[in-house]
């Protein structure tokens, strides 16, 4: 009996070391990438709640909070391959939650990289209602009637309107709605396809104050930020991901709060202008 136990133990120990050595030899050297998110306005750190900024339309404005998602973040290697962070899952940033503004991701293959890319917001494969049930992400939900899923971004603030009053604005981006036939049909998605994960979309009647919704527009867009950086084994590479607030209102469309008003979730033209401008909003750099 005791011989049997000794044999068993010996076999186990040998197997353990064999597996250990195999595992070690197959490991790819990896490091950590850390994103430090910075919100800037006109080149300086964004100061919340201060009516000290002027956008390209001449609106004096303040920002009270910025909450946003990126997804499918890819690190582009110099050999042309890519490494997808967090399996492409959405990543949430919030000026009110400092912990979200510095996020690290491990197991990034060591090597030379040429830049990153990401989806601003969530694409149709990920933007499903109730995929987040916990706050703060769940508080970003985008009503199913308006297309479902989640806000890509809530940028809240106030501006000095033409009457000299400080008026609130909610620059919220997400799935747009087609209330008429202006948008190309190729951009439409089926309402049931969009909402089926929530199981409670059928039977909606359009509100009396708006036109019937005939389809939806996916407003997410891809951002590509070239930057040479290196991931070294067992080391952390910091990257500054910067959102330049003024760019949301600058080019190619000059965005005037006096024109669009305080809320744009049901104004596809405003959201499209915002998303077009979003291509120029981000910069990536290595901290000095």
């Amino acid at each position: 009996m005791s011989k049997l136990i000794i044999r068993y133990l010996a076999f186990s120990v040998i197997t353990f070391f064999i597996l250990l050595s195999c595992n070690k030899s197959s490991q790819t050297p990896s490091g950590i990438v850390r994103f430090d998110v910075q919100h800037k306005a006109n080149g300086s750190t964004l100061e919340l709640n201060k009516l000290i900024y002027t956008n390209a339309a001449g609106n004096q404005y303040m920002v009270t909070e910025v909450q946003w998602f990126v997804s499918k973040v890819k690190l582009q290697k110099s050999d042309g391959s890519t490494f997808v962070l967090k399996n492409g899952e959405p990543i949430y940033f919030d000026t009110g939650i400092p912990a979200t503004l510095s996020q690290s991701f491990d197991k990034v293959p060591a090597g030379s990289y040429t830049g990153i890319s990401f989806i601003f917001g969530l694409d149709e494969t990920q933007n499903k209602s109730l995929r987040f049930t916990n706050p703060p992400e769940s508080f970003m939900f985008w009503p199913d009637y308006l297309g479902g899923g989640y806000h890509y971004m809530k940028l809240n603030g106030k501006w000095l309107n033409v009457n000299g009053l400080i008026e609130p604005f909610n620059f919220h981006l997400g799935i747009g709605q087609i209330y008429d036939t202006i948008a190309p049909k190729s951009a439409w998605v089926n309402m049931n396809d969009c909402c089926k994960s929530a199981r409670h979309c059928e039977g909606y009647q359009p509100p009396q104050k708006t036109m019937p919704i005939t389809g939806f527009v996916q407003n997410y867009f891809e951002v590509s930020l070239p930057l040479a950086f290196t991931i070294e084994e067992n080391k952390t590479q910091s990257l500054n991901l910067q959102m330049n607030i003024e760019q949301w209102f600058k080019e190619p469309h000059i965005y005037d709060h006096n024109h669009w008003g305080g809320s744009i979730m049901q104004q596809q033209a405003a959201m499209k202008a915002g998303c077009d401008n979003g291509h120029n909003v981000f910069t990536l750099s290595i901290p000095r």
Binding site: P143, Y145, Y204, Q205, P207, S263, M265, Q266
Partner: peptide, 14 residues
């Protein structure tokens, strides 16, 4: 249902 739409739209009851 109309109330729910109003509840969850900016141009409704917001």
């Amino acid at each position: 249902l109309r109330g729910f739409v109003l509840f969850t739209t900016e141009e409704g009851a917001d």
